[in-house]
Amino acid sequence: MKRFFAQCYIWLLLIVLYAPIVFIAVFSFTESKVLGNWTGFSTKLYANLFTGNMQGTGSLMSAIENTLIIALIAATVSTILGTIAAIGIHNMRGRAKHAITFLNNIPMLNPDIITGVSLFLLFVFLHVSQGYVTVVLAHITFCTPYVVLSVLPKLTQMNPNIYEAALDLGATPFQALRKVLMPMLKPGMISGFILAFTMSLDDFAVTFFTRGTIGLDTLSTYIYTDARKGGLTPELRPMITIMFVGILLLLLIINIRKIRNSNQQAA
């Protein structure tokens, strides 16, 4: 009996969590303009999305393009910066190391809105005209700590003599970094990259405050503006569904990698 209630509770929780997204996914397969009206199964919205046969297609497509390009740049740059930072932090000693690790964690706990507003104020203060560049810089800023966090454990697990062994065998510090350290840190860097990529895709608040007034839209700001104009464009339903499935796949990859890594260590 107790078991039964426990099961019910879990299912209730899952329904509350996933009902909205399932709702949108289901209604992405019908043509109705208003969300909630089922007018028969159709893949027309998907077709529209890919053929561009809809109102405001241009701006939606450019928003998607912006989102992906910004996410790619932000994830790439923050993976490089974060990895270098992690190596630096790992080689620090004692109190300084603790202090820096702590400082690295703060931006992740900070609400996005605070990050967004403070970056906005910083750009204004520095007289940087806001637009594409500031959004990219902002995304790099909040993505980097996540990369640091996924690379650091790889460094701690590593035998401290390995880097020295490379130097000892005649590698310059740069060669040792490239031929020994990087291959060993690769799993952490990939996890960090994926994490940074999804964080960037997902972001609304920071983008909203740093995009300025030039009319730059990412997917999240586009949807926000669109929803305020009176109801969602129907084509956003297949869009959201595709993104959800995409993110789900990414998460699965991350988790499978993690499980595989821990199995390797156990073996």
Partner: peptide, 29 residues
């Protein structure tokens, strides 16, 4: 610097490169 010294070291905990096989480890230098 260490990479220019005519010495080589055998470490206490081996410090082999885990991403390389036995041959590649030995051929590294």
């Amino acid at each position: 610097p260490p990479h220019e010294r005519p010495v080589n070291t055998v470490f206490q905990r081996y410090a082999l490169f885990p991403h390389l096989d036995v041959y590649e480890n030995i051929a590294f230098g």
